[in-house]
Design a protein around this nucleic acid. Structure first.
Length: 1022
RNA sequence: GCCCGGGUGGUGAAAUGGUAGACACGAGGGACUUAAAAUCCCUUGGCCCGCAAGGGCUGUGCGGGUUCAAGUCCCGCCCCGGGCACCA
């Protein structure tokens, strides 16, 4: 290792830039420094973490990425940099910090790519991961790569499958509010059978009602029946679920993949279909998932999103007896107090009673409506709220209180998946019911005092009930209680808490996911023995469904266990990510997903950083699995992450150009016009945004259009100089809005002044048509801030920035951009500032001793051991204070500012004192680790700066002797007066009033009031 | 429609109810240099008065309010971004 004093002694081959530097003062050589320290960290295993129970732990986790083919762009590292700063800071503070990284490597894009190219997804995934790794390494993260996990690795998904089996082997005991082993349920059935009123009755999407059975019944059931019953209780269970089935693709599509009833790629029709699906009974945990939120240090918006998603509502279940058939329509309502305002009942089109109750003569009409309504996706039904549609079934049910007949309608504003799939319609008290009633001319009864039901429903919950009946005159809350009591007395209903949360579909008809460790005997699903795990993905000839619509796994040669067929669907993307945080604790364990010792030591994630788009998906399943593993005694905490921070999205600045396509006629020598066929000679014209907008507006005047066309003719003629034919007419070839189009231009073709590089633009678009400008050049593109994405040609790759400025500059800049949680556009304009700061900081250690901020030309260290001066100490301690406090509250942009202030001030002071610079190197290390290591080494330390103790700030250096008070009159600052710190309020007031300038302002009038806030302000009220 | 964020200079932004615009970019001017790079210094919210020193008015999306004092707290709006579920 070279010594810090040996700048001149370095061999030219080792540092080829030495000579260049001799003639320049580009002293801070980021490339050399960063390369050196990357290699050094890897060699020394600087970021290796041991499970060491003797030390306090801190667990910092990033949401792991899906390794897509596009690689990282500058938006990805934002959260990683923030978490890396915290991880490094906590290390300096003496914590044993777990800061791992891995890959969520199962997923659709790899499979899509495999279908197109025939390449195995494992292969492309491998390539993508290598690329990600290289890019991550370039940024200098302190990840312990020995703990890397990949969800698609059999040694990882073995345990995903194992957890699945635990869920399969569990049921939820609502009395004890926890999951228990199926064996306990079996002994219970053996002893007492089961009744629907038992507390182990379950929420969720159980389709058929499960009837009561006695212990003797249970013992007499055959194996199939027993297993079928158990499906009603298992937390991982096979049931029927609605899916988006695409017959053309032979596969099930996610909601995202369906647009307007057709598949987004390819445009094939999609229908809603019921299919056997593995599901997760997350609904059992609804109340606990809701309760747990209060104690979490997560952003309010995420917690609120989860609360809404879980959607707890209190109300009543009400039964309306059918008039012409046996049975009831059950509805859930939050407003049983409005029962006397019911004028009809509406069923969802999916409701099973629709078919049963509709009389023959209305059948065709009703079923026609049901078919169209059912096939609309929920998103569609959601989109046009204003359109009312429905149909009368022709039958009635009986009002439980009045005994009157209530007509039964079908309407698609009622959703099959929520509540009971039926509502009691109270048009006087519910706006959607009101809309429906008004549209179909159904009666509307006022339910509350003072409501004007001619215009809208009255949904107030602080009103008094006015509808005729025993609830009249009562306040809403009292009426609710009373109504429920009456319903219960009549056996026509009961109190009910309803959750919106639905059970999670857990099967995918795909190849690239974890195989589900289940085999079928006699059509009954059985758990694969643990000893068979991992159940590895089989080789298949194609990654497509089979001809008869089975998932790709059905193509495998021998996809069976002891002669019984294995499950062919795979797990969804969220399986691996629901528990991966536990694997990092003990990633190589072959006998368990993680050892109890490791889990006891690392416990919950202390800080979790990731995007807010996972608010209701990943973050809910993540909590669900944690609670489940806790219930079954595998872990001793039931929330995965104490604190969650959502980094904002980095948007890209796209560059837009506006293009015109022309159609041109030519004049031959005989003055005949004919269409010019040689498109290659017709220019493509770039116009300004103003002209683009003018052309697209409907109100474009013919005169202006004529002027534009004249100009286009001139351009075209010019382009045709030397051609045999003269240009005749020039017209825009498109029609209406198509006359002009806007295009994304690759941002690398546009300079800082937004000028388009026409030569490159032409080349990159390989257009044969010449490009001409409508106005005199250069062509200015119009910037637009939008999501950073490849298709918008606005992605900025961190690699380019790193090679130009270095990783430390990138890290600082991304933090300097603004608060971590805010979305902001990526704009490299400011990056020079952070780069200059690092150079200034570097120069403090290599001063030439003359010009402030100027480095020695030989780049030799200039640090002295002299005692620092008072102002120097003040800068140091003010910086330490601010930076420490800012890291604690994750305000990284302001800490970077403080470092800049320190570098500027120490530069002016020409401070080169070790006692000042050394603590600053440690404080800067979490932000800019490479330069900090290099300077630390120059300060003659042989160990890594990452292990140095965090420097403490000392308030004594920040004490001021005096304070310059802003003196304001009626809140407006007018002057400054300096007073010693120790002066009392009264003394300050007296001295202020004695001041001649203040007296002049007062003009002889005595002030009404004088407010003195020590060390803040003086306000004189006149 | 509902829920959650957010609106401050040319730009990214800062500001425990207490001097609005720190820090940085950009822009303009200057020093050093043969030149460039690098570095340093000055100016930079708007409007107005003044030769100048300096001074005044105004200003944090809009309209009110509380307060000695409001970017910050309260009420009512507008706009932008994100999320969602016509949720009975």
């Amino acid at each position: 290792m070279r010594r810090s004093s040996g700048g001149e002694g370095r061999a030219a081959s080792e540092r080829p830039s030495t000579f260049r530097r001799a003639s320049s003062s580009m002293a801070y050589e980021h490339k050399d420094i960063e390369q050196k320290w990357r290699a050094e960290w890897a060699k020394r295993k600087t970021y290796r973490v041991e499970n060491d129970p003797s030390r306090p732990k801190y667990y910092v986790l990033d949401m792991f990425p899906y390794p897509s083919g596009a690689g990282l762009h500058v938006g990805h590292p934002l959260g990683y940099i923030a978490s890396d700063i915290v991880a490094r800071y906590k290390r300096h503070c003496g914590f044993n910090v777990l800061h791992p990284m891995g890959y969520d490597s199962f997923g659709l894009p790899a499979e899509q790519y495999a279908i197109q190219t025939g390449q195995h997804p494992a292969k492309t995934t491998e390539v993508n991961i290598a690329r990600y790794r290289e890019q991550l390494d370039n940024i200098g993260f302190s990840f312990d790569w020995d703990r890397e996990v990949r969800t698609s690795d059999p040694s990882f998904y073995k345990w995903t499958q194992w957890i699945f089996l635990q869920l399969f082997d569990s049921w939820y005991d609502h009395e004890a509010q926890k999951a228990k082993a199926i064996s306990e349920l079996l002994s219970r059935f053996d002893a007492q059978g089961w009744h629907p009123a038992d507390a182990c009755a379950l929420t969720g999407d159980v389709e058929e009602e499960l009837g009561a059975f006695t212990a003797d019944d249970w013992k007499a059931f055959d194996e199939r029946t027993k297993q079928r019953i158990l499906q009603h209780f298992r937390l991982a269970y096979l049931s029927e679920a609605w899916v988006n089935w695409c017959p053309a693709l032979g596969t099930v599509l996610a909601n995202d993949e369906v647009k307007d009833g057709v598949s987004e790629r390819g445009g094939h029709p999609v229908e809603r279909k019921r299919m056997p699906q593995w599901s997760m009974r997350i609904t059992a945990y609804a109340q606990r998932l809701l309760n747990g939120l209060d104690a979490l240090d997560w952003s309010e918006s995420i917690k609120e999103a989860q609360r809404n998603w879980i959607g707890r509502s209190e109300g009543a279940l009400v039964k309306f007896r059918l008039k012409d058939a046996a049975g009831d329509i059950e509805v859930f309502t939050t407003r049983p107090d409005t029962l006397f305002g019911v004028t009809f009942v509406t069923l969802a089109p999916e409701h099973e009673l629709v078919e049963v109750i509709t009389p023959a003569e209305r059948r065709d009409e009703v079923m026609a409506y049901v078919t169209t309504a059912k096939n609309r996706s929920e998103r569609e039904r959601m989109a046009d709220v204003k359109k009312v549609s429905g149909v009368f079934t022709g039958t009635y049910c009986i009002h439980p209180f009045t005994g009157q007949e209530v007509p039964i309608w079908v309407g698609d504003y009622v959703l099959g998946g929520y509540g009971t799939g039926a509502v009691m319609a109270v048009p006087g008290g519910d706006q959607r019911d009101w809309n429906f009633a008004t549209h179909f001319g159904l009666p509307i009864i006022a339910v509350t005092e003072g409501a004007d039901i001619s215009k809208e429903a009255d949904e107030r919950r602080d009103a008094t009930i006015s509808s005729e009946g025993f609830l009249k005159g009562q306040k809403v809350p009292d009426a609710i209680t009373r109504a429920i009591a009456e319903l219960e007395k009549l056996g026509a209903g009961e109190r009910r808490i309803n959750f919106r949360l639905r059970d999670a579909a857990f099967g995918r008809q795909r190849y690239w996911g974890e195989p589900i460790p289940i085999y079928y005997k006699d059509g009954v699903p059985y758990a694969l023995p643990e000893s068979e795990l991992p159940l590895k993905l089989p080789e298949v000839d194609k990654f497509l469904p089979t001809e008869d619509g089975e998932p790709p796994l059905a193509r495998a040669a021998d996809w069976s266990y002891e002669g019984y067929p294995l499950e062919t669907t795979t797990m969804p993307g969220w399986a691996g990510s629901s528990w991966y945080f536990l694997r990092y604790m003990d990633p190589k364990n072959e006998g368990r997903f993680a050892s109890p010792e490791a889990i006891n030591y690392w416990q919950q994630v202390d800080l979790y950083v990731g995007g807010s788009e996972h608010a209701t998906g990943h973050l809910l399943y993540f909590r669900f699995w944690t609670k489940f593993l806790h219930d079954r005694g595998w872990i001793n905490f039931d929330e995965p992450a104490k604190k969650l921070v959502n980094q904002g999205m980095i948007q890209g600045v796209s560059m837009i150009a506006y293009r015109l396509f022309l159609s041109v006629t030519a004049m031959t020598s005989g003055d005949d016009e004919r269409e010019l066929l040689d498109l290659g000679t017709i220019p493509e014209v770039l116009v300004s945004r103003e002209i683009y907008e003018a052309l697209r507006s409907d109100s474009l005047s013919p005169i202006v259009l004529g002027q534009i066309e004249d100009r286009l003719k001139a351009i075209t003629s010019e382009a045709h100089q030397g051609q045999p034919n003269r240009v005749g007419n020039v017209r825009l070839s498109g029609h209406g809005q198509g006359k002009a189009i806007h295009t994304h231009v690759d941002i690398s073709l546009v300079n800082e002044r937004r000028e388009l590089n026409l030569v490159e633009f032409q080349k990159q678009n390989s257009r044969s048509r010449p490009i001409r400008l409508f106005d005199a050049g250069p062509y200015l593109c119009v910037p637009e801030v939008e999501k950073m994405s490849k298709s918008k040609l606005n992605v900025v790759n961190p690699d380019d920035i790193i090679s130009k400025y270095g990783a430390d500059t990138l890290r600082l800049y991304e933090m300097f951009l603004g608060p971590i949680e805010q979305s902001k556009p990526w704009d490299t304009n400011g990056i020079e500032g952070t780069f200059r700061f690092l150079r200034k900081f570097w120069n403090l250690f290599h001063q030439d001793g003359e010009t402030p901020g100027q480095a020695r030309s030989d780049n030799a260290p200039s640090v002295s051991d002299e005692a620092p001066t008072k102002p120097e100490l003040k800068v140091l301690h003010a910086t330490l204070k601010k930076v420490t406090e800012d890291i604690e509250r994750m305000s990284f942009n302001t800490s970077v500012s403080q470092f800049m202030i320190a570098a500027n001030e120490l530069g002016s002071l020409k401070c080169n004192k070790r006692a000042v610079l050394e603590p600053l190197v440690i404080a800067l290390a979490p932000f800019a680790p490479h330069i900090a290591e290099e300077l630390w080494e120059e300060l003659e330390h042989s160990d890594s700066v990452t292990g140095a103790a965090w420097p403490q700030w000392d308030a004594q250096h920040l004490v001021e002797d005096s304070f310059s008070y802003p003196i304001s009159f009626n809140g407006k600052t007018r002057m400054q007066l300096e007073f010693p710190i120790g002066l009392s309020k009264e003394e300050v007031e007296a001295q202020v009033l004695a001041n001649p300038e203040v007296q002049a302002k007062l003009g002889g009038q005595p002030p009404k009031k004088v407010i003195v806030v020590p060390k803040r302000i003086v306000n004189i009220v006149v």
